[in-house]
Amino acid sequence: MEVKSTVTEGVTVLTPTGRVDTSTAKAFETSVMDAINASKKIAIGFNEIDYISSAGLRVVLMAGKKLQASGGVLVLINMPEKIFAVFKMSGFDKILKICSSFEEAKPFFN
């Protein structure tokens, strides 16, 4: 698992790759928390993820809560059907913003 980080139009876009599971969740958490400390506008792209376990979901959830508390914005983008099913199953789609693309997510950051 690696986390690519780019800045587009003032939004930090994080793209984890491979498997986000118990063994890699800590590294994912560090990358996400570093990004949150540096920026209030975060998008996480899920297009290069093969698998996300509950430990990974916890990191996403924590990021959402942290940003919400500090007046920031988190949008989850480019989510394949299979990953979306995981978010829907656990009910996370109700409290996290999920958009199909960065373009669609843009209004949330303005």
């Binding site: 959830l61 199953m89 656990s90 009910g91 996370f92 109700k94 409290i95």
Partner: peptide
């Protein structure tokens, strides 16, 4: 009908 996982909200 599924509610949210426990401990979140």
């Amino acid at each position: 009908d599924s509610g949210m996982a426990l401990g979140i909200f």
